[in-house]
Design a protein around this nucleic acid. Structure first.
Length: 886
DNA sequence: CAGTGAGCGAGCTTCCGCTTGACTT
């Protein structure tokens, strides 16, 4: 008989096994084991008829939740039950936070152990910490469990009452929630600012001066004692100087005149100011700050960062990657300090060990900060890591080490100069002692600020010096609209407002992109028109729920519930029931909200209206009593849509496609059109005998207005034949595909090899020699599904239904074809090389059909529910596809 | 691949947090 210990993660289970005496069995719960039913198929038959069944919470019976074991957790629960049979004691060692406490409670409810139980918590995975924890077990804190349950129910009530309202009033399949709707609103608010933004322009002067043969830069700051206007003097809403600012705005002529007037005049240093500055290293990483830095420095998405961190964690390189704490164990601090001494010397050590305290709202601190694992840190060089994993480990290692290093000492130098009535200023920075900057410089969301830590050298100067002017130039500037959110800055804002948790930052971004609320372009999150419609509705009718402060208030109440100062039931009742409760609010709004109005977005300075239709956003304009409509292409953003764009779209619709000209050889007309998948060119018209004329999409980044006849002719020749490969005799060609321009080497039976073109190549002009060069380069490793570092034996291309890749992999039972989650074996009589995409599709289809009918378990129930869920998921696929293609 | 923008109306879509799966003969 043994003691069964249950933790949340299998990696943790493996580690602590080594720290426990023999006779302890450690198993993982893999997170939550029970939850409210996620979809209709999970609702038990017995309650299906109830009016609260869809909610999964019996709101009329004191909000009694309906818990089910999700399908993917059944196996785990079974394993735990089995493990418990041979145990004489159960220790619940889930994380010490609200969710962890709840997991333990659910485990008790499910496993119903007849043996003694204990609750154990630890924050560090070291032998001492775990032995200590074992001696100090407690019982489950029911109040904390209640707080979690209240949170869970509230989120369900918000999400499952608001979402259906959006289906009715705006569009099918939309969603709303405590977290996602606030995130979407942040994006929309920023986009509105960009739309309201008016550009201002101003000029100033830049001089290159020289003292003792050392050049330095200087910028105009005053003319005749009045400050010269710069960007911050402009009102972004008007593009003019803010009322009441006593500044001098220079235009181009004035700036150039000033250059002429100041040329060859003597310069004098009038004032020098030196100011010492010390800077402290940033605290060690939490989930949120790691995601931000990896996005800024490595351009990784939040999701990719977490995937990489997870892998580092599983390999034992770093501590747990989902944490909101900046706390370091004594052991970690000692390890970091010894790294500093060894690598940089003791003068770089901070005089005292630094321990940071967490400032984030609502932090629960169940784990340490993210740091290299162990009691001595492996330097990045000493690991066998490579690629992305090495980069992320390097980031974590440096950040952790840096936080035990000395402050950086710098001197900020400001030099004022005078020439005639013009005042100039030069600024410099001297790094007196780099301290932690030797190891780590934090990235910034503002690219200009990233330069901040660099030294800016000024020659030694003193008051009265007369530097020579080598160059004087007038420079024009334009004010910039507020930057859109990036993944990094959105995560930063959400965290500082206490919205979302470390385990969810990455998925919040996926959710708002998947639901069609935002698109990620060049690292910027751009809200869609649907996001505008939804946000406008929620702001108008449910302002409290989309307020950034809502979560903070909820968290406060949850804290009170967990300490016993507040009661959960009155809180939920007040929130949901009664006249002012959410239920009633939604019912009232349902009759008040006009559907057509909710689907309409009115934008300032835009004559046309934007409407949300079944197939995405479109514009509508009433002209001469006639309703004109046209679809909005995907790349049109709410901030930039203007009357001339509307005009162009309508013109294309009413007057038919724009004719670019005639093909020089065939004399057929070439049209430029805007389709669902973006702009494209077409050779000839659609007629009875020519139903599918030759078409070609424009390459990314090319606008309709940029297309010349020559380019269109070129695009229509694609795919081009380049010639014969000198080594193999295979055919080499170039074309434009889903992932952009490519070259291809077709060796018949041997299959085709593809390579993407580099930025400097042009698909229309690329020649055989260059193509062969590209084909000789190794294939770029695509980051396939997590963990499976296994490389595909062959890539067959993409599935026509969903565009997902169809690959052949080697498995323990021989090679198999993989498409998404469907695997299909290859018949014995067929070799891997013989399989074409068409054959693969047949095999996959055959596999999918046997899967459907071959359900196991009870006959009638499984087949019927299996069928509905199948149709439901197909239906879902088509709509998401439509939504994303708009 | 390259349009559309209402409808008979069954039953369905949807939330936030924990955690890692991976059914080929």
């Amino acid at each position: 008989m043994a003691t069964l210990v249950i933790v949340e993660s299998p990696t943790k289970a493996r580690t602590i096994r080594n720290f426990l005496p023999s006779g302890y069995q450690v198993e993982a719960s893999m997170g939550h084991v029970r939850d409210l039913p996620q979809s209709a198929s999970e609702i038990p038959e017995a309650v299906k008829g109830e009016k609260w069944a869809q909610l999964g919470v019996n709101v009329d019976a004191d909000f009694e939740p309906l818990y089910v074991v999700p399908k993917d957790k059944k196996k785990i629960v079974k394993q735990l039950q089995d493990a418990l049979k041979s145990a004489n004691e159960l220790i619940l060692a889930t994380d010490e936070d609200r969710e962890g406490e709840s997991i333990s409670w659910h485990l008790l409810q499910l496993l119903k152990p007849k043996v003694p139980i204990k609750r154990m918590v630890f924050h560090e995975i070291t032998k001492e910490a775990i032995r200590d924890a074992l001696k100090n077990c407690r019982t489950i804190d029911e109040q904390v469990v209640r707080a979690q349950e209240t949170r869970r129910i509230l989120d369900r009530l918000v999400g499952y009452t608001l979402s259906p309202l959006l289906w009715k009033k705006i569009s099918w399949g939309l969603s709303a929630g405590r977290v996602q709707s606030v995130a979407v609103r942040l994006l929309v608010t920023k986009e509105r600012l960009r739309r309201a933004f008016h550009q201002g322009s101003y000029w100033d002067l830049e001089a290159i001066l020289e003292q003792n043969k050392s050049p330095f830069e200087s910028r105009l700051v005053t003319v005749a004692g009045t400050k010269v206007a710069t960007g911050s003097d402009f009102d972004p809403n008007t593009g003019n100087i803010i009322q009441g600012r006593n500044v001098r705005l220079l235009n181009e002529t004035e700036a150039r005149d000033l250059v002429t007037r100041l040329t060859n005049k003597p310069w004098t240093v009038t004032k020098i100011d030196e100011r010492p500055v010390t800077r402290k290293p940033s605290p060690p990483f939490t989930t949120s700050t790691l995601q931000q830095e990896a996005n800024r420095k490595l351009r990784l998405s939040a999701r990719d960062t977490m995937r990489t961190a997870q892998s580092l964690y599983e390999q034992g390189y770093i501590t747990y990657m989902r944490t909101d704490s900046v706390h370091l164990s004594d052991q970690a601090i000692a390890a970091a300090r010894s790294c500093v001494e060894q690598m940089y010397g003791s003068q770089y050590l901070s005089p005292k060990p630094r321990q940071y305290t967490t400032k984030a709202k609502g932090a629960q601190e169940a784990h340490e900060a993210i740091r290299p694992a162990g009691s001595s840190f492996r330097t990045p060089k000493d690991t066998r890591l490579e690629g992305r994993e090495l980069q992320v480990y390097d980031l974590i290692w440096k950040r952790t080490v840096a936080c035990q290093m000395a402050d950086a000492r710098q001197t900020q130098i400001t030099v004022d100069l005078q020439v005639e009535d013009a005042g100039f200023r030069s600024t410099g920075k001297r790094i007196d002692f780099p301290g932690y900057l030797r190891a780590y410089v934090e990235g910034s969301d503002d690219p200009d600020a990233a330069l901040e830590d660099q030294e800016v050298i000024l020659p030694p100067l003193k008051v009265g010096d007369r530097p020579k002017c080598k160059d004087l130039e007038a420079i024009g500037h334009e004010t910039q609209p507020p930057a859109r959110y990036t993944e990094a800055s959105l995560v930063k804002t959400l965290e500082s407002e206490g919205i979302g948790r470390p385990s969810t930052y990455a998925s919040i971004i996926s959710t708002i992109v998947d639901r069609g609320y935002a698109q990620l372009t060049k690292n910027a999150l751009i809200p869609t028109f649907t996001a505008f419609a939804v946000t406008t509705l929620l702001e108008k009718y449910f302002p409290d729920l989309v307020n950034t402060g809502f979560t903070a208030k909820m968290e406060q109440t949850l804290d009170e519930i967990s300490t016993g100062e507040a009661q959960w039931l009155p809180y939920l009742r007040k929130f949901y029931l009664g006249e002012k409760g959410l239920d009633n609010q939604v019912k009232q709004r349902e009759s008040q909200i006009d559907t057509a109005e909710a689907r309409t977005i009115e934008l300032e300075n835009l004559e046309a209206k934007v409407r949300i239709g079944k197939f995405g956003a479109y514009i509508e304009l009433n002209r001469d009593g006639e309703q004109l409509t046209a679809s909005l292409p995907q790349d049109v953003t709410p901030a930039e849509l203007n009357d001339s764009q509307v005009e162009l779209l309508l013109k294309q619709k009413t007057e038919g496609p724009d004719k670019l000209g005639l093909h020089p050889e065939t004399e057929e007309p070439i049209f430029i059109l805007n389709g669902t998948y973006g702009p494209y060119v077409q050779l000839g018209e659609v007629t009875e005998e020519n139903k599918k004329p030759k078409r070609a999409s424009l390459p990314k980044g090319v606008n309709i207005s940029d297309v010349t006849l020559e380019m269109a002719v070129g695009l229509l020749t694609l795919p081009r034949k380049l010639g014969i490969h000198p080594d193999t005799g295979g055919k080499v060609g170039a074309g434009l595909g889903r992932f952009g321009p490519y070259v291809v080497h077709d060796q018949g039976k041997e299959g085709k090899e593809y390579r993407s073109l580099k930025a400097e190549d042009n698909v229309l002009t690329i020649e055989l020699e260059r193509a062969v060069e590209l084909l000789a380069q190794p294939k770029k490793a695509r980051n396939s599904t997590r963990g499976s570092t296994k490389e595909a034996l062959r890539a067959l291309g993409n599935h026509p239904d969903d565009g997902e890749p169809v690959n052949i992999y080697d498995g323990p039972y021989g090679p198999y074809i993989k498409h998404g989650k469907t695997n299909a074996g290859i018949p014995e009589d067929q070799s891997v090389e013989e399989v074409t995409l068409a054959i693969a599709l047949d095999l996959l289809a055959a596999k999918a059909s046997t899967k459907k009918s071959g359900g196991r378990g009870k006959k009638s129930e499984t087949t019927s529910s299996g069928k509905t869920s199948k149709t439901a998921s197909t239906a879902k696929k088509t709509t998401t596809k439509k939504k994303t293609s708009k």
